[in-house]
Design a protein around this nucleic acid. Sequence first.
DNA 1: ATGTCTCAGGGACTGAGA
Length: 259
Amino acid sequence: MQVATWNVNSVRARQERLLHWLRKNPVDVLCLQETKVIDNDFPYEEIQSAGYEALVHGQKTYNGVAILTRLPAKDLQKGFVDESADDLQARLIVATIHNIRMVCVYVPNGKELSSESFQYKLNWLKRLKTYLTRQVDASPQLPFLICGDFNVAPTDQDVFKPDDWKDSVLCHESIRDALRDLTNIGLIDIFRRLNPEVQAFSWWDYRMLAFPKNNGLRIDLILTNELLAKTCSEVKIDRDERKGEKPSDHVPVILTIES
DNA sequence: ATGTCTCAGGGACTGAGA
């Protein structure tokens, strides 16, 4: 079984590339971020023609997440439903597929360290930790994964030029601490576990010729609980998807699970 | 060296967000 995650940077602007990618990579589940479309305008029919059901949680202009699946899904959840605080931004969708609880997230970018957006990002990760703790504690015997655009590069190994990025919202100690705090509940960065020595990136800025220079970061992650990690055999980052006409600035990350 | 891309509003370009 294969589960992938991809920040497509607009599902409508990327529709042809998305459908082409699915033909070439017929994964069982594809988690999408930054769909940038309200639910009524999601390209359901095109996705269905490709063999996938689309579970969507979108909003106008910004954010938006979706789970495309070939397999039946149950217990669908959109947003922090068990939280009392406002949750106006569409950044989280959850479903159980093939007996695996799957969470798809688009973590806030945070703009600048000194901005309110960065405080929102830190707070959002705290809320996510609370939410996940409940999910994981409620059913410790269930295979579990969370994937998506975390907007955090876990360590310097995940950054082409760590010194250039150390004070950025993607790499600052405070945000790495927040990510570690989250993973400490028992989640494993499965790419890193299976590829301890590899340097690979999932995002390159559109600006400043970042991709030709390979000035990238690994900020698109798949985290699993230990139960699921035991059955994971490979994680691949599809770097080639950044090439050619109209690429997303992020590329897909593909997890293979033995069953 | 903030150099690109996407969306929305409004009917060409600008601003926001990343």
